[in-house]
């Protein structure tokens, strides 16, 4: 599954990125390409929970792609990318990559992990939404979890179908007809042991169908999981910090935190976590509206708008006047 993030620099500055080499290109089915990625010199890549993604630099944008392995530390990552006809989402960029090309990727990010207490895992995938489910199925096999997979694909275009058949055996049911798939999903949701969790990835209508049917059949929201790429702190709009006491102006470009910009301008601000949680880097605001992105300030403090946690927060207005 793919998601496009607005602009480069969508991840935290300290998110040590991975430099990866395209070690293999496999054309699964027409229009879907699998990339095998390794460290150029070889070596282990970071482990990740099933359902994780990496964010690849794709020319002028960054795209999130699900990792299809079971998540144990290993030497290669695999992602499968569907070529969108209109080239949206950077898929054309990926489809132009060749063996030996170097790409930059984030470390794995997890937002769709299996629930460890589940008695049974019901996996529902539509189209290229199969990619995180392949990871889930692989991990379930490795760790001997009870699961089943319902997979809808276009006739003749079932990415990973053979692999899945070998992996899942009769735990896989594949459909080429949408009504049949939806009927099977409804039947499964109508009768599974208490303790089951359902996971869905695919086109928005499929996700909606699963969520609505599950709710109608009495599934509490805690048992229903849909793949949505987490909104990481984005790079943010550029703005200027005006230092009221010295009168100096510090530009804060997109992708640079206010704290870093102040430090680079020689203004020392106490700080600890640089994640918006510890409360150390609070800076008083004289004018301009802060764009709060921290976990520290209370609702009242946020509304007052007279202080900002400069390690993560930014400015709504073009200028933010600080009492520094």
């Amino acid at each position: 599954m793919t998601a496009t993030l607005t602009a480069p620099g969508a991840l935290r500055a300290d998110d040590g990125r991975l430099v990866l080499e395209v070690a293999g290109v496999v054309d699964e089915v027409p229009g879907t390409r699998t990339l095998v990625l390794r460290r150029p010199g070889g070596g282990l890549l970071p482990a990740h929970p099933p359902g994780s993604h990496v964010v690849l630099d794709c020319g002028d944008r960054r795209n999130a792609y699900s990792l299809t392995g079971d998540g144990s530390p290993c030497e290669e990552y695999r992602v499968s990318v569907l070529l969108c006809p209109d080239g949206e989402g950077g898929s054309a960029f990926v489809h132009r990559l060749a063996v030996g090309d170097i790409v930059s990727a984030s470390r794995p990010r997890s937002a769709f992990a299996p629930v460890s207490t589940a008695r049974h895992h019901l996996l529902v995938a539509g189209g290229i939404g199969i990619t995180p489910m392949l990871s889930h199925a692989r991990a379930a096999v490795r760790w001997r979890r009870s699961f089943e997979l319902l997979y809808r694909h276009r006739p003749g275009a079932g990415a990973h179908l053979d692999e899945l058949r070998g992996l899942c055996g009769d735990r896989l049911t594949a459909y080429t007809s949408t009504p049949e798939m939806l009927a099977a999903v409804r039947a499964a949701l109508a009768d599974r042991p208490l303790g089951t969790h359902v996971y869905v990835c695919g086109p928005t209508p499929l996700i909606g169908f699963v969520e609505e049917t599950a709710a109608e059949l009495g599934w509490p929201g805690e048992r229903v999981h849909a793949e949505r790429f987490s909104a990481d702190l984005d790079a943010g709009e550029p703005f200027t910090a005006v230092l009221a006491r010295s009168g100096s102006r510090v530009p804060v470009p997109s992708g640079t935190s206010l704290l870093t910009a102040l430090e680079q301008a020689g203004v020392a601000v106490p700080n600890l976590c640089r994640q918006g949680v510890c409360g150390e880097c609070r800076v008083p605001v004289r004018s301009g509206r802060p764009l709060h992105r921290d976990l520290y300030l209370s609702e009242t403090e946020r509304a007052a708008g007279d202080a900002v946690m400069c390690c993560v927060s930014r400015s709504v207005d073009d200028e933010l006047e600080l009492d520094l």
């Binding site: 482990a47 470390r107 794995p108 997890s110 949680v277 976990l295």
Partner: peptide, 17 residues
């Protein structure tokens, strides 16, 4: 003081590794 609530939200957002 919100210390542990904040800590929990922070920990829940930690990414692999």
């Amino acid at each position: 003081a919100g210390v542990v609530q904040r800590a929990e939200r922070f920990l829940m957002r930690l990414q692999p590794g």
